[in-house]
Amino acid sequence: MTIFFAILFSVSTLVFAAGLAMKIAQYARTPAPLKIPTTPAPLTKGGVALRLGREALLFESLFRGNKPLWLFAFVFHLGLAVVLIRHARYFETQVGPLVALVQPLAQPAGLAMVAGLALLLVRRLVVERVRYVTGPSDILMLVLLLGIGVSGMLMKCVVHTDIVAVKAFFTGLMGFELRPLPADPLLGLHLLLVCLLMIIFPFSKLLHAPGLFFSPTRNQTDNPREVRHLAPWAARLEEKG
């Protein structure tokens, strides 16, 4: 089990990092020939940065468009953020101040994450107009995330595992040292689902977070009258002409 997960985590981390870098490079190369910011839009670059920050942290446009969906998504993402920060302790030799700060929120955050995911899944299955545009991959992504959240909460609240040994395994793996991983079936399931998520994440719809910053509807200033918008490739053609 130790050797299997050491190899699996190494491969999944490599796929995750390479896939993420590849997709971000693809986003950066995609031309944006038109000036198409969603109005009302900021007139300055500072306003654009502020807008992107509100969108990334508060889901501003979703709040305006669908408040129940915003609530489900915000609860899930907030819980997920706390859970991810807390999980950093398994890769640190000494617990950092941010991890220590969120430590008391671990159980509420895990419950919020699972509850948000469950509500999003129910919405996909119950609301007819949403169910009509829902594909199998949409359901599978939510089920995968739910599996990770539920298995993690079970280890936190019901079937406890040896977290000291788990931390030793991951800190050792970072230093290319193999340390034994607890032979816990629930832990094995949790780690297996996490590795699966890491492998498919860069190639799935879950990659909307970095994509937001490359969206021309969000990252452009609303100044088409004052400044002519010219894509780099169009500028090169104009210079040649």
Rank of each mutant, 00 (worst) to 15 (best):
P68D: 10
V48C: 06
L117Q: 08
N223K: 08
M198Q: 07
T134F: 12
I200T: 12
M113A: 15
V114R: 00
L120Y: 10
E239Y: 09
F16M: 13
M198H: 07
L105M: 04
T93I: 09
A28I: 09
K240H: 10
L119M: 15
L78M: 10
V127Y: 10
A18T: 14
Y90S: 01
V133R: 14
L125D: 02
A234Y: 00
L34E: 11
L145H: 09
K167L: 03
V95E: 14
K240I: 14
E239G: 00
L189T: 04
L192S: 09
L196M: 12
A25K: 14
L58T: 06
D184N: 15
F5A: 01
G241M: 13
F76Y: 11
L173M: 08
G147A: 07
A88C: 09
F176S: 14
G175A: 15
I85G: 01
E177M: 05
E55P: 05
P216I: 07
T171N: 14
V75T: 15
H87A: 03
A6C: 09
E226M: 08
L98T: 06
H208Y: 13
A18K: 10
L71H: 05
E226W: 00
G149H: 04
L197D: 01
L178E: 06
R29E: 13
A17I: 13
Q26Y: 04
V227P: 00
G175Y: 09
A17V: 15
L230I: 15
D184V: 05
L237A: 12
P224E: 11
P31R: 11
F72I: 07
Q26A: 15
V75S: 01
R129V: 11
K167A: 05
A165C: 03
K167F: 00
